[in-house]
Design a protein around this nucleic acid. Structure first.
Lengths: 174, 174
DNA sequence: GAAGTATGATACAATAATGTCTCATATGAT
DNA sequence: ATCATATGAGACATTATTGTATCATACTTC
């Protein structure tokens, strides 16, 4: 039950940071009193959800990257790991999360991506003239795009990360 | 003043559909009483903002597309017209807007994009094997990406649509 | 300067949301 | 079946938000 509440919170708060706890409880299929039994306050729920999202992303990323040798390898593996967690990302960047340590951690993540972009340029995977922040933003966007197309049933989970990588590097042209 | 309220509403509701009217008023730099003088209720404010966004997008799109001859031309001109209105798009797809006629209009827009994708494939601009919904979602994403990079001052407005088009079709590779 | 209009701050009533608590019922373990 | 625990529904007090209204002050027009 606790996880159902967290999942409902992540999903709902990502799109509406002002959503009521009643709405979260309803979406989780539990009573509001039960929600309060698991999470003493709104802030507690958000903090727990934030922690879970960050832990999941960190674990998936660390596991995926441990054997990566090239920057391109890192990018590919990162996408494989993170696309299934697109909704977790979305929650963390939403206005719901207003915690300084989460902010810091997210900024570290962006920093890591920026360095990855630098390495991709050095390897000639990404064009040297592509604005760095533009490349970072596009990587982030592909994560969410792939996740939401899978969630909508319009894309097979097994192909999502590959398609995101291909679109990111080669675009949609033939 | 009325426009300042609408702009604040569009900007704020896009990210937090549950934002309070006090917050909107503050961001608009007006008193809450003044907000109510212009918009009798929350729903009225949202309806007016929705109408404005749709009108702006429709006008810009119609103007941009009137001389387009190829599908690629249409795409390029659509991006030029719509990137500066990325925040308007974001507002319309947010959970704030819960109006059936707006929903319908947005779906018509997606339908138009899907047909554009078909034409782009027929012209060989987009790969025939690219999933249709994937292409549509990527076009939408590039609008928002370009808009937000410009808003953050990381991208020059004059280059945004071009960069979006290039990234969409050719990706980030050299 | 005078008159008319607009505005922000504030108060108020009504409603919604939050956190706390109780109780009848459901669920799980034995 | 019995007992212990968990749960949802609802009540309650408090806080936040919304819509309405008032008033002193600011602003605009002449």
């Amino acid at each position: 039950m606790r996880q159902a509440i967290l999942d409902a919170a992540i999903d709902t708060f990502a799109r509406n940071p002002g959503a009521s706890l009643s709405e979260i409880a309803t979406r989780a299929g539990v009573g509001r009193a039960s929600l309060h039994r698991h999470f003493a306050s709104r802030a507690d729920l958000i903090a727990a959800a934030s922690q879970q999202c960050m832990d999941e992303i960190d674990a998936a990323t660390a596991e995926a990257l441990k054997d990566a040798r090239t920057a391109r390898d890192r990018l590919s593996r990162m996408l494989e790991a993170v696309v299934p967690l697109g909704d977790r990302y979305q929650f963390l960047v939403s206005e719901t999360v207003d915690d300084e340590s989460v902010r810091k951690r997210y900024e570290d993540e962006l920093d890591w991506l920026a360095h990855l972009v630098d390495d991709l340029k050095a390897e000639g995977v990404i064009a040297a003239d592509a604005p760095r922040s533009w490349a970072v933003a596009n990587i982030d966007a592909q994560v969410w795009l792939a996740w939401s197309e899978v969630a909508a049933g319009r894309l097979a989970p097994a192909h999502a990360a590959d398609l995101a990588l291909r679109t990111l590097l080669e675009g949609l042209a033939p």
